[in-house]
Structures are given as C-alpha cells and as structure tokens.
Design a protein around this nucleic acid. Sequence first.
DNA 1: AATATTCTTGACTGGTTGGTCAGGTCTGTT
DNA 2: AACAGACCTGACCAACCAGTCAAGAATATT
Lengths: 197, 197
Amino acid sequence: MTTRIQMRNRARILDAALEVFSQQGFRGATLDQIAAVAGLSKPNILYYFDSKEAMHRALLDALLDVWLAPLRALNPQGNPQQEIIGYMRRKLELSRDYPRESRLFANEVLQGAPRLSDEISGGLKSLVDDSAAIFQRWIDAGRLPPLDPYHLIFSIWALTQHYADFGAQIRLIRDGADPLDGADAYLEALFTRLLAV
Amino acid sequence: MTTRIQMRNRARILDAALEVFSQQGFRGATLDQIAAVAGLSKPNILYYFDSKEAMHRALLDALLDVWLAPLRALNPQGNPQQEIIGYMRRKLELSRDYPRESRLFANEVLQGAPRLSDEISGGLKSLVDDSAAIFQRWIDAGRLPPLDPYHLIFSIWALTQHYADFGAQIRLIRDGADPLDGADAYLEALFTRLLAV
DNA sequence: AATATTCTTGACTGGTTGGTCAGGTCTGTT
DNA sequence: AACAGACCTGACCAACCAGTCAAGAATATT
C-alpha cells in the first residue's frame, strides 16, 4: 500500500535529489544536501529510498521516458522539414521545461555514461537508428538535402540541450537574461535554411 | 628556481588532475585518484600544489587561453562565411585535440560556473560582444543572412563542443566509432547552408 | 666528500560521508 | 480508546576525505 504521505515525500525527495544531482553530479552530491533541500532528515530520506544510488536510479529511469518521447513522435509519412523542425521544437521545450533533467543527463554522459550505457546502446540507439533510416529515405527521395542523418540528430541535440546545460554561461554573457530568449526563432531559421532542398 | 623534476612532476600532476576533474567534476574528484593517475603519492602532489583547489585553478587558467584563442583570431576584414566557418573549424579542432579540457569546462558551467563567473562575464563576454558586433556589421552590409549574432556564436559552441562533451553517448550510438567521424564535413555543409546570403 | 637544498613518504588528524539502528511519534482502523 | 502499522529521529559507525608533519632519500652545489 502506498499512502498519501509516501507519495508526497517520495516526490519531495526526488525533486530535491534532481536539484542536487543535476548541479553537483552523483559523486559531488551528498545525502545531507538532498535531505536539506527536501526539508526532511537524512535517515528519513533513506527510509523512502534504500540508498543514494537508488535515488539516482529512480531519476534516470523517469528521465529516459521523457527524453525519448520527442523522437518517438516522428512521423515517417509527414513532411520532412516540418517533422524535423517539430522534433527540434519538442527538444527545445524540454530544455525550457526540464533544464534540471537535461543537466542530470549531461552530467551522466560527461562522466562516460557509466549508469546509462545499457539504455543508450539499447533503446536510444535503436530509436536513433530508426530515425536515421527515415531521414535517409527522405534524402533518397530528394525531399531532404544529403546531410548525414546521424549528425543531423546529434546537431539537434547539441543545439537544443546547450540552452539548458550551458544556461549559466549564456546568462552571464547576456547580462542575466533568460538563455532561451530568441532561441525558438533562431533555431527555426537555422533548420529552415539547413533543410531546404 | 624551477628544477627539471618540478617541471616534470607539475606537468604530470596537472595531466592527472585534468583526467580526473574532467570525468568526476571538482567535488567528485579525490586527491587519491589524482595521485594514483599521476603515479605519485598524495603528500607529494600536495608538495607541488597547495590544495585540490589550486590544481583546479591552475587547470582553468591554462584552459581559458586555449579556449578563447579561436574567437580572437576572427578577422573583421575577412570574408564573413570563411571567417565564421574558420572559427567553427578551430573550435572543432579543440574538441578533437582537447576533449578533456572541453569536459572540464562543461562540468564547471553545468555546476553554475561558480569558479568561472568572473572570467566569463569579464573577458569572454567582451570578446563575444565584439564578435557579435562584427557579425552584425556583416549582416547590415548584406554579407550575412539576418541571424541573431549571439545565437550564432552559441550554436557554434553547441555544435562543436557536443562532440567532446557527449562523446560517450555518440560512441555508444555509433558502435564505438570516433565521435568526430564525419563531423567536419557535416558541420561545413551545415554552416555553408546557414550562412549563404 | 661534505653540505645544503629539494624531493618524497608513512603515519597521522579532524572533519565529512553514506548508511544503520533502537526506540519514539504519528495516523488510520476497529 | 486501543491497537497495528507506518513514519520519523538522535545517536552512532566505519570508511573516506583533504591536508599536515617529521623525518628520511635523492639531488645539486661547493
């Protein structure tokens, strides 16, 4: 049985853990920090999660679903330009709405993806392979310029996630403004030019 | 006086520290790890650097010069397309030749750039402002399409650094191949299309 | 060869970390 | 009200952490 208190506290803990892990990385984060942010005692957060590792695991599992959703929504029957720009927009929305998740993922990959290698070389890889095949068919049909499909996907990731992962840098350069100011319009212009046949 | 032994050991320590910091972040790295990678004892590496902090500081200081060099080389009198693509190429070379430095920087910015905010809002910002002004003049002269100069710079950073910072992910998706395989050609095609008037 | 200097280390310290545990408190049910 | 189960905590522990130190080993200078 899951009680109301369990629901509330588990959510609080995961939110606090996300806050701390995404900023400090796994090794850099401490249970004391997480407990403080969650407003609970350290033994109490360990009552809800077996270990620091378990909290991290729970966050990564929840993250992957959200992360892969935009790529899944790609429609092979649609218009190539609209589909790819739509994908880019959905990824950019993730950077806007879930910057902490983006940084958690970035932290993990920066460290060599030790806890994500199975998921990446499994589910993510096959999803990327499928999408690359769709792009290739569009290219073969002359509906897209002859751009390497894998690099095209990587460039969408790079351009959109950059606004979340390097937001601190952009904010410092742009006098504290929201990093995503003007990003929509710029990226739309970029991909419109890039994908024109 | 700096002796030969000092030169050799300082270099060894900084190389080891770069290896560990770039993978684990500042808090996640330990002096024992750094000492082990350097092949020296922990008290010995502390004989050459006052503290863990000092090693990190030394790395960041050395990094910034290398990091800003490509942007400094921009020539306002040159051909816009060639200049920007040249800048992109130099940044991509940094990702190829100094991936650990790229990840060190990424780790730092991910954590909110606590030890780099002065350098970013100082030297880097003014360099970016100057470059953006050059781009804007090119745009006003009709020699570049009307793209936001700041976002243009950010997109160069995003696209090139991605290959170093997210290299682990790319390697997993591309069956262990060098992440930078084909990146040159792809990015050249991308920027050629993007910057055409 | 003798001396001064630089280099290196084992053993240590005070503080932090992830995690445990016994016992107390709160909450829902009868 | 009384009981069971869920919830919470102070005190604790062993492992790990950055950094110190005294003394020995290696090197350079005379």
